[in-house]
């Protein structure tokens, strides 16, 4: 059936299998956390599982597989890995600030930051409030 997979030596097949299953398993756990956790600021931590070692595992496995089945060194995957590493913090930071300003009502750079976080903790305790 698929002939390219049979070219891979056994040790590499085991390494690739472990890397890929670990990566996608961590991504699945991240998504599970996204559903199970109760407040927004808890949930913001969940997808980082998928973007850190989740992506790294799948990309390393893919690079290894295509290097062994192709005839040259394949390091395309490092570009995606680097892209994920540098873009995830940017999106999460902007999203976090957006959530802060939407929650607190005040701008995040208020004179007294303690009052904002106090309000936030109250909001977190509320859990799944249906405010939009």
């Amino acid at each position: 059936m698929t002939s390219h997979l049979a070219q891979v030596p056994l040790w590499a097949a085991i390494v690739i299998a472990v890397l890929v299953v670990l990566g996608s398993g961590l991504t699945l756990l991240g998504a599970l956390g996204l559903v199970r956790l109760s407040s927004f600021f808890d949930r913001i931590h969940a997808p980082t599982l998928g973007t850190s070692w989740g992506t790294a595992g799948v990309m390393l496995g893919s690079a290894l597989l295509f290097t062994l089945t192709g005839d040259r060194l394949v390091i395309h995957e490092i570009v995606i890995g680097a892209l994920m590493m540098t873009t995830t913090p940017v999106t999460l930071m902007i999203l976090g600030r957006a959530a802060l300003s939407r929650n607190g009502g005040a701008r995040p750079r208020a004179a007294n930051p303690a009052s904002i976080t106090a309000g936030l903790d109250a909001d977190a305790a509320e859990g799944g409030s249906d405010r939009r």
Binding site: H45, T48, M85, P89, M93, G96, R97, L100, P108, P113
Partner: peptide, 22 residues
Amino acid sequence: VTATPGTAWLDYDPDSGELLLH
């Protein structure tokens, strides 16, 4: 800080140099 699961960088105040971390 953000790439590490478990910590999230939320806000940084350039005047006081204070970082708000979750």
